[in-house]
Design a protein around this nucleic acid. Sequence first.
DNA 1: TAAATAATTGCAACCGTTTGCGAAGCCGTT
DNA 2: AACGGCTTCGCAAACGGTTGCAATTATTTA
Lengths: 344, 344
Amino acid sequence: MKNRQVTIKDIAQQLAISPATVSRALKDHPDISKRTKEAVVELATSLNYQPNSIALSLRNKKTFTIGVIVPEIIHFFFSSAISGIEDVAYQAGYNVIICQSNESYEREVANINTLLSNRVDGILISVSKNTKDFKHLKKVTEMGVPLIFFDRVCNEINAHKVIVEDKKGAYEAVKHLIALGCKRIAHMAGPDTLSISKRRKEGYIKALTEHGIALDDSLIVLADNQEDGIKAMKRLLAIPNKPDAIFTVNDNVAVGAIKVIKKTGYKIPEDIAVIGFSDDQKITSLVEPHLSSIAQPAFKMGQVATELFLRQIEMPEKDDFDEVTLETTLVVRDSSTKSKIETT
Amino acid sequence: MKNRQVTIKDIAQQLAISPATVSRALKDHPDISKRTKEAVVELATSLNYQPNSIALSLRNKKTFTIGVIVPEIIHFFFSSAISGIEDVAYQAGYNVIICQSNESYEREVANINTLLSNRVDGILISVSKNTKDFKHLKKVTEMGVPLIFFDRVCNEINAHKVIVEDKKGAYEAVKHLIALGCKRIAHMAGPDTLSISKRRKEGYIKALTEHGIALDDSLIVLADNQEDGIKAMKRLLAIPNKPDAIFTVNDNVAVGAIKVIKKTGYKIPEDIAVIGFSDDQKITSLVEPHLSSIAQPAFKMGQVATELFLRQIEMPEKDDFDEVTLETTLVVRDSSTKSKIETT
DNA sequence: TAAATAATTGCAACCGTTTGCGAAGCCGTT
DNA sequence: AACGGCTTCGCAAACGGTTGCAATTATTTA
């Protein structure tokens, strides 16, 4: 059953013509007579001929493939971004090959190497949480392979970047909490090594200081996932002057916080309001109360990143890079509604 | 800045030796002297030489790449399966290229074609909901490319398959509902064209008949996603003899049902118990009450599918195919607890 | 009728790597 | 001095497709 894939040579042989002629016939080259063209096309389709992309890539030094590295595809945000990437890529005739770093630095390096070895035409990456050394990324740019960062960017490297208005989004969220009358707003922050975490925290701080609320270090805790959120919330509820609002670096952390708050007997948002980040709708519209969050245009982000890539390969000489910032929108749900003001 | 990627020829030229020698030196061939080996390896690493996989693939007629097609990576089940696939694949030295069909037949055909054109060594697929014609899959097997189905299989084609005990899982779930004292158990079923939907419905029917409960066609409704679940639930609540339990074909449908049930004022599980399928933990442990569901070993499924692929390429001659069935486990949560019996 | 022009097709090189085979060069043995 | 054997390396073909150029044939023009 080992039906070797049919090649241009097979067609040439059966028709007793040269491979060159077959090649030209298949791409409707004007030099080839109508008769041979028809014969070639007919045999090709009947044999299920499929051009060998490998051979083409080798000859043209172009694979029409984009490599994408994300921490984990399971996250709504990254899945959506990937869909956005595919959307633009497919339209431009590119294939997409997706790698997961699983938030591991080693895996990320390995991913980069296989992508380079596979001669992808460009790499779109959202860096892992544990990536503190950027030699592997530097190598990519040095080899002349277009590199585009999205969401989790690396400031040490000169390349196109697509980010969202993390700072402004966070600022709006906290402002909203202040407008609700919250006085002690806690922040569950991600690690500072991640640029997005850092920017979100900056937005939080900006909102507080701008409204004359003194920073309280005991209200800023580290939490990166649901479990962290649970632990952090327990600690926050144990301090004497407990918070009346929580702004978290992502939705999962918020879920952790909500679970603890509810179990302890406090009411959301009456006693403690909660706002997440990312607006993973699988979470925000499922948890009770429905979670307010800052929506990121993930799909759009993937699209823009891919468009930047396409632009870069069109003008390889340009070496000034764009940093595109996309807008976020605060989505207010039950976990931070006005009802709070009215009941107090 | 267009640093062409360095090739074996570049190294050969700089060292004034032949490409053949460089190639042999790099793979520690015994014919090459220690002196040249050292020189080659040193220059190669200093130049950041990376073998061109494209050229290798062309020569060896082997890409060490597995193509994977799933409906949507956003689903917990598929993401987990993909992780399982990557787990085994990477260990065996294979790359994985992931495609989404987005539940579109046309997209699935396009995916198959690009994968074939890219000469992947095998294809692992979970077919789209809207795939009713299987010519494109038939073509894959005819071309001698290993094809493995997982979860959403296609019975018309002779190939390795990995499925879960859908029927038994459904059976257990319904049996559990019967044990709770439920008399009118409804089933929100998927389309019969999907083998998994069919098997789940069979399990539902088997459990009822085995316990002497007459089938009631008005209790079997079609619903495939959350929105469907909402509509279906509204209809079920409108019939005179309303159900006291719902078994749904997946967790999203269950969420739709739960939302309607709660809004209507009924209590879960006291008035109506609910059980989903798949155990997407992002859903089941977030919705309230926590949703009972049938857990599928998605990660394991990916692993097994990949192992089957590896086995097939080792023995290409074999043409009898396995159908591996993995176990499911009923995870009982609040939406179907014993409390119901005690309160009645 | 010879020459020029146009219409078709084939030759050969190339992309980067591997590998069977042959070719040197050097050594020791008879 | 001649031969055999070993070590070390290069030639060339191959994987599948493309493309500049030359070659062949058919057709037109002078």
